[in-house]
Amino acid sequence: ITFYEDRAFQGRSYETTTDCPNLQPYFSRCNSIRVESGCWMLYERPNYQGQQYLLRRGEYPDYQQWMGLSDSIRSC
Rank of each mutant, 00 (worst) to 15 (best):
Q52H: 14
I73Q: 01
D6V: 04
G68M: 11
P61N: 09
Q52K: 14
E59T: 04
Y26A: 14
R7I: 05
G68R: 14
Y53I: 15
D62W: 13
C39A: 08
I33W: 01
G68V: 11
Q10L: 05
S32K: 00
T17K: 05
M67H: 10
E59A: 07
Q51D: 08
R12D: 06
G38K: 04
E44L: 10
C30E: 00
S37Q: 05
Q65C: 11
A8I: 11
D62R: 09
Q24F: 05
A8T: 10
R45N: 04
W40L: 03
Q10A: 14
Y26P: 08
T17H: 02
E15M: 10
R12K: 12
W66D: 05
G11E: 03
F3V: 00
G38D: 15
Y26H: 07
R7D: 04
L42P: 00
C76V: 13
C76L: 14
S13N: 12
Q49P: 01
Y48N: 05
E44H: 05
N22W: 04
Y48V: 00
F9W: 09
P21E: 07
R7M: 02
C20L: 08
E36T: 15
W66Q: 13
S32L: 00
E59N: 04
N31P: 05
T2V: 13
G68S: 12
A8H: 12
S72Q: 07
Q64K: 08
Q24Y: 11
P21R: 05
L54V: 12
E15D: 07
F9C: 15
V35A: 02
M67A: 09
Q10S: 07
Q10G: 11
L42Y: 01
R29W: 08
L55E: 01
D71W: 10
A8Q: 11
I73T: 13
Y48R: 02
R12C: 07
I33K: 01
Q64P: 10
L55S: 01
C30S: 12
Q51K: 04
Q52W: 05
Y4K: 00
T16Y: 15
Q10C: 13
E5D: 10
D19M: 09
E36V: 11
S32T: 00
R74Q: 11
D71G: 09
V35Y: 01
R74V: 15
G38E: 10
Y60K: 01
C30R: 01
R29K: 10
C76G: 15
R12M: 08
Y4G: 00
D6M: 15
T16H: 11
G68W: 11
P21W: 08
S28C: 05
R57M: 14
Q51T: 04
D6C: 14
Q10Y: 06
G68A: 11
N31E: 15
R29D: 03
W66T: 12
S28V: 09
T18A: 14
L69V: 12
Y14H: 05
S75Y: 02
Y26C: 13
N22C: 05
C30P: 07
Q64M: 06
T18C: 04
R57P: 10
T2K: 09
C39D: 05
E44F: 02
A8N: 15
Y48A: 03
F27L: 06
W66C: 04
L69E: 12
G11V: 02
G11H: 02
V35R: 00
Q64G: 08
T2C: 08
Y53L: 10
Q49E: 15
L69A: 11
D71I: 06
S28Y: 10
F3W: 01
D6T: 13
W66L: 07
S75A: 08
Q24L: 15
D6R: 11
E59I: 01
R57A: 13
C30I: 06
E5P: 05
Q24R: 11
R45H: 08
M67V: 11
Y48P: 02
Y26T: 04
R12V: 09
Y43Q: 01
T16D: 03
Q51R: 11
Q49F: 03
R7C: 11
Y63Q: 05
S72T: 05
R29A: 14
F3R: 00
T2Y: 14
S75N: 00
P21D: 15
C20H: 14
S32M: 00
R57G: 13
Y48T: 02
R7L: 09
M41E: 13
T2Q: 06
W66F: 10
Y53M: 11
V35G: 00
W66E: 14
D71P: 05
C76Q: 02
P25Y: 03
T18G: 10
S75P: 01
Y53S: 12
D6Y: 12
F9H: 02
C30Y: 02
T16I: 06
E36C: 03
G58Q: 04
L55F: 03
F27Q: 08
R74H: 11
E44A: 09
C30G: 02
F27C: 04
C39K: 08
L69H: 08
Q24E: 15
T17M: 05
S72W: 10
G68D: 08
S32N: 01
R29T: 15
Q52S: 09
C76T: 11
Y63L: 06
A8G: 13
C30T: 04
S28H: 10
P21Q: 12
T17C: 13
R12W: 12
L23G: 01
L42G: 07
G50C: 03
I33R: 00
R12S: 09
F27R: 03
S13E: 06
Q10V: 12
E5K: 04
I73R: 01
W40G: 02
T17E: 13
I1T: 01
Y60F: 04
R56W: 09
G68N: 08
S13W: 11
Y14Q: 03
Y53N: 07
F27H: 06
Q24T: 05
Y63V: 06
L69R: 10
T18K: 07
N47E: 13
Q51V: 10
C39R: 07
L42C: 09
E44T: 03
C20Y: 07
S37C: 06
S70K: 06
I33C: 14
S37P: 02
W40K: 01
F3A: 00
N47V: 04
G38T: 04
N47H: 05
R34A: 12
S37M: 09
